[in-house]
Amino acid sequence: MNVAEIRGLCKEYPSFRLSDVSFDLATGRIAGFIGRNGAGKTTTIKSMLGLVRPTSGSVSYFGMPFAGNENAVKPRIGYSTGAVNYYPKKRIRDIVAVTRTFYPSWDEAAYDEMLELFRLDEEKRPCELSDGMKVKLNLLLALSHRAELLILDEPTSGLDPFSREELIDVFKKLRDRGTAILFSTHIISDVEKCADDVAYIRQGRLAAALPKEEFTARFGIEGETLEETVVRLERSEADA
């Protein structure tokens, strides 16, 4: 079952154009959203969440258009943009105390579990955390309200390899519980480890949105890793 349907998403900036991006996200699947820096991953995600107004196109979640149904849709979505970069001088405890009031489905047990897993101290302030710990704090907030869909922009960037492995394990557990996950990254090996689907964006255009095996079969050469395939595709584009 699809939890999100993105159709013909376009966004025009003076120096960049996101063109006709369409893909679906399904329950209990992890989609890796890959592309080089500046390819349009963040613009797509921001357009999906209403942070950026698309020039055209539509976004639906759980069978409802996002526009006009924000109240019904947003509590069912968890979103994280890499590191927490808001309220740097407030204690984590205070940020969480306010955030939880907005989510009727806030799961205190899940919150405590993540807090322990990520080894976060509620008495600290975001400005006292390393970049990696800030990412974990953002994920903690996104994961604590039983979101049915997680949209994560560069969640593994800035994390050490051990934390990335832990995070990927968390993704897999959530997938097994039926949560759909879309995460953008330029660390292709993370996608290789856990993604079921791959959405590949190049210069503002979606080059492919396929199950990972199909993506590898269509674009890969035998013996190549996903990362090698994507790097080769990028190079061929640059040479063309």
């Binding site: 209403g50 942070l51 924000e70 109240n71 947003k74 808001y86 309220y87 907005f102």
Partner: peptide, 15 residues
Amino acid sequence: EANDIVYSSLLPVPK
């Protein structure tokens, strides 16, 4: 300075 507008816009409330 605290990126309050982005935080607020991501809360489950209309813009």
